[in-house]
């Protein structure tokens, strides 16, 4: 996990959510980077077989994750974006 200080709450929430919905939680990793003023981008890597699970039908799971992570980011005082990569 990268720099803890970027957005600790958002990152913790993101990791928890992703690990909960996938079938291989150990393969989940998150990388945070600052992409703008108070804006953090998270690149989430999951097992290839779990890609569909984090995205969900019509992207519902992914958008739910983004919503909740966004709320967590508010606590850190940052806005967030979440990308899922294989």
């Amino acid at each position: 996990m990268s720099d803890e200080s970027l957005a600790p709450t958002a990152e913790a929430v993101l990791v928890h959510l992703c690990r909960s919905v996938v079938s291989s939680p150990d393969d989940v990793s998150v990388e945070a980077s600052e992409v703008g003023d108070q804006r953090i981008r998270f690149d989430v890597t999951v097992n290839k077989d779990d890609m569909g699970r984090v995205i969900g039908r019509r992207g519902r799971v992914a958008s739910a994750i983004r919503t909740v992570v966004g709320a967590a980011g508010a606590k850190d005082g940052v806005s967030t974006e979440v990308e899922f990569v294989e």
Partner: peptide, 24 residues
């Protein structure tokens, strides 16, 4: 309020993810 969000969108998302997690 943080877990509720505007128009309870965060809460709905949490509920959705809870269901997905449990169902899986």
């Amino acid at each position: 309020g943080l877990l509720l969000g505007p128009k309870a969108r965060t809460l709905d998302a949490i509920q959705e993810l809870t269901r997905v997690t449990a169902q899986r």
